[in-house]
Structure formats: structure tokens, C-alpha cells
Design a binder for these strands. Structure first.
Lengths: 239, 239
DNA sequence: GAGTGGTCTAGACCACCGT
DNA sequence: CGGTGGTCTAGACCACTCA
């Protein structure tokens, strides 16, 4: 365990235990270096960790101070589905329910920047944890003539990877929107919940380097099985 | 503009322009130091910035490589209500609908670690943007005898601040849970949406230094007015 | 064994702040 | 002015990887 990390833990402990309170000033970097027998650069490495996590903030010419924690702020992260479920200790699975090439509905053709009557590839997956349906995924991308539809890959790969492989467009940027929705008549039986149940809709836009939309679609997550948690975690001891 | 930042911009540009592609290896730290006439520590400071942003990742003994961007990952942030609305260019407002001291219902007493029949302070606020109701907030905290109830402050302060001021407990840690819900019969008229509409419930636990729960409660955000957005951008240019 | 990133040191100069 | 944090240097040792 490197010294800078140990010192970070010591200082974190003092802050979380209330020994150092919000607004208090920390000893100067030189002071800390003397106290703990570390060079100033090492002390700074340690402080930069605590600053990143929002526990302290440094002010040139004045000193370093304990921050008031942002307790009324929340940060939620959603990983790619397989990682997300593994993180939660669940066994992720996916069932490919549909793959089609179809004339783009107006709304979707517009999003993807296609002309009237352009063709899109569509797929739909049921995402499970163990045997429990967790989410439904419906995605659309430009259809590339002659490109083979590889069901095996469609079952396991994330949307951005499917696009990279199927088309010759490389997505470089994404935009996701999270909102609450009601489970639709069609989706209820698939998710094994009554229509009208609360759910989370995670809409996804993937953009190519030229700012065109390479893919669009959404997930519908069961509200009774999927929620998001935001927590402040202590520094780990082992890693 | 410090040298480490300039170099970060140069490398960032090479990655975004495709001169350096995902999977490519960067020159070694010593190599970069020679090329740009910088010490190794300065080069490392620069690389740590790019690594933080997820553009590169370092592997001991092997080298530093350009990362594939995490396009199927989303990060959502909810600020304290007034900041959140200001960020969205809206005028935040709050109306205090109720303040009460009451015997803790079993469920809430348990959360707050109170004995049977302990008293809690409860308040309810309607949060608006302009004249549009955005969310309803219902919060519970331990009741401190003799503490004055300051309606003015209850109207403007975030929950953690209310607790800091009203009680002598200092919240130091928070846990928030986000889930989709249906608007209840009671809340519908207040939020000016039909009961059964989709909404987001943001549950909040505030912990004191001794790990006891200092406050608990939740927000209910209108689903038709409030959604969360996550964007992964190629990068910033200046600043 | 040569090269890599991870860590650490003991200096240094600067802009900034308070007195 | 002296002290603060922000930046930088030119060395050093280590564990690791790869040929």
C-alpha cells in the first residue's frame, strides 16, 4: 500500500469521523510532509485524490479546506448491461427476440438521417438476470447492403459494438436519456409485469465522427427489479 | 497555460482526429518527455488527465494505450434542486406545503432509529420551475425539542442543510435511490398530473458520522417534465 | 535484460493571499 | 513580507512484461 494512499485514508477517516469538520483548514502541504515524513509531491498526490472525491478543496495562497459534502447531489451510473448485472452479482443473459430489415418509419428515419423509404436494421432483445426479465431493448441502425446478420453476435454485443461490426460507421459519441414510463401492452408479457407498471426508459443515440446518428433505440427496465443507487464510498483498502 | 495541459490537448487532438486510434499505444513516458522537452513527472501529470477522462489507459510493464470509448455506459447527475433547475435554465421556486411534528409511523421510526412513539419532524415542499410543478418533496428527521421551526429556511434550504440547522446532528454521508413510480392519488393534484402518471422517485438517506440515519425522505419528479441526460463528448477545447 | 508504468525524493520558481 | 498551493525538474528504486 503506497504511502500517499495510506495518508489519504488517514485524512479521509478524520473527515468522515468529524475530527476534521467542513470549513476546517488542513495542515499545509509542507506541514503534512514533515509530520508524515513524506516529500511534498507525495503529499500532493494524496490530497489530489481527496480533492477529486470532493472531500477537500485547495485555494492558492490560502490553504486547503475540508469541503461541505454535496449531500443533496446524486450521481447514477449505468454500465453496459452485462457489466451492470455482473456488478450487482447477477447472471446476465440475453435473448434475441427479433431481427428485421425494414423500411424506416418516418420518426426513426428522421432520427437516423435517412431519406424517405430508407431501410433500417432493427433488433429486439430481452435482457435477463438469471431467469428474471430485467429489460427489453429495441434498437435501430442504418442498414448496410450485403452485410450479414450474425445472430450470435447480436445476442451478446452492446449496441455500439453491433454498429461497429455491422456497418462501416464508427460511433464515437453517445447521448442517453433516462425517463420514467409505463410498461406498454406489448412489452408487459415479455417483461412479465402488468401493462401500466412503472419502468425506466433509457433512450440511446449513437453518433459518428461526422455528427450523424449511427444508431438509435431504447431500453425499458422493469421498475420493480431495477433501481439506481448513488453512494459515497470510503477509499478501498485493497484493490 | 501550463505545459502539461498543452501536451494533453495535443494528445487529445491526435486521438480525436483518428491519428491515434483505439488500441494504439502511446509513446512511452520517457519518449514523450524527450520529444516535448518535459520531465517525466510532467508527462505523467498530463497522461493522468487523459486517463481520468477515459481516453487512455496505462498498463504497468506494457505501455499506455488509447481506449475504446465507453458508449454503452451512462452517467446521470442530479444536483440539489435549485442548482439543477438553474443549470437547465429554469427559475426554481419552492412552496412549503406542510410542517409537522408527529409520532413516527413505525416504518419511518425504524429508519431513523427511534424508539416506539418517538417524534419526528416532517415537512413537505412543492418544487416548481417557473409556475410549473416539477416535484414533490417529503422529508422526515428526528425532532429536537425546543428547536424553533423556521418556515423561511424550510422553504429554501436543501434537506441536509435543514438537518444541520434544526438538529445538532451533522449529516456527513448520503445514499440516494432512483426508481420509477406511479403518481399517487394524493400527489396527482399537487403535481398537476393525473394519478398513475409515470414519475421518478428519488429516495434520500442522510447519515451522521456514527452511521445513524439523520434524515430520510424522497422526491417525486414529474416524468413528463423531468428526465436525465448523459453525454459522452469527444472533449473540451479551452479552459 | 531492457523497457514500461508506479512511486518517491529534495530541491526549485511562480502567482497568489494575508498581514 | 512569509506562507500557501501550482508547477516543474532530474534523478531514483520497484514490480511488471516481453522477447
Amino acid at each position: 500500500m503506497p504511502p500517499y494512499f495510506q495518508l489519504a485514508q488517514i485524512l479521509e477517516q478524520k473527515i468522515l469521523s468529524g475530527e476534521l469538520r467542513p470549513g476546517d483548514s488542513l495542515p499545509s502541504e509542507n506541514q503534512l510532509g514533515r509530520e508524515y515524513n513524506l516529500s511534498r509531491m507525495t503529499v500532493r498526490k494524496c490530497l489530489s485524490i481527496l480533492a477529486e472525491r470532493g472531500l477537500i478543496s485547495a485555494h492558492p495562497g490560502r490553504g486547503t479546506f475540508v469541503s461541505r459534502p454535496a449531500l443533496d447531489r446524486a450521481v447514477f451510473t449505468i454500465e453496459e448491461f452485462h457489466k451492470e448485472m455482473s456488478r450487482r452479482g447477477l447472471n446476465p443473459e440475453a435473448r434475441l427476440l427479433a431481427v428485421k430489415v425494414l423500411k424506416a418509419p418516418a420518426e426513426i428515419g428522421e432520427k437516423l438521417g435517412l431519406e424517405e423509404g430508407g431501410r433500417v436494421m432493427y433488433f429486439c432483445r430481452l435482457l435477463l438476470a438469471g431467469d428474471t426479465p430485467m429489460a427489453l431493448e429495441r434498437k435501430y441502425m442504418r442498414f448496410k447492403k450485403g452485410s450479414p446478420i450474425l445472430e450470435n453476435e447480436l445476442q451478446y454485443k452492446a449496441f455500439s459494438e453491433v454498429i461497429s461490426m455491422h456497418s462501416d460507421v464508427l460511433p464515437v459519441r453517445s447521448r442517453m436519456i433516462l425517463r420514467p414510463v409505463l410498461v406498454g401492452e406489448e412489452d408487459g408479457p415479455l417483461l412479465q409485469v402488468p401493462a401500466g407498471s412503472p419502468a425506466l426508459c433509457l433512450e440511446q443515440y449513437l453518433y459518428a465522427a461526422d455528427e450523424t446518428v449511427a444508431g438509435w433505440g431504447f431500453f425499458v427496465f422493469r421498475g420493480d427489479r431495477f433501481s439506481l443507487v448513488s453512494e459515497i464510498r470510503p477509499l478501498k483498502e485493497v484493490e
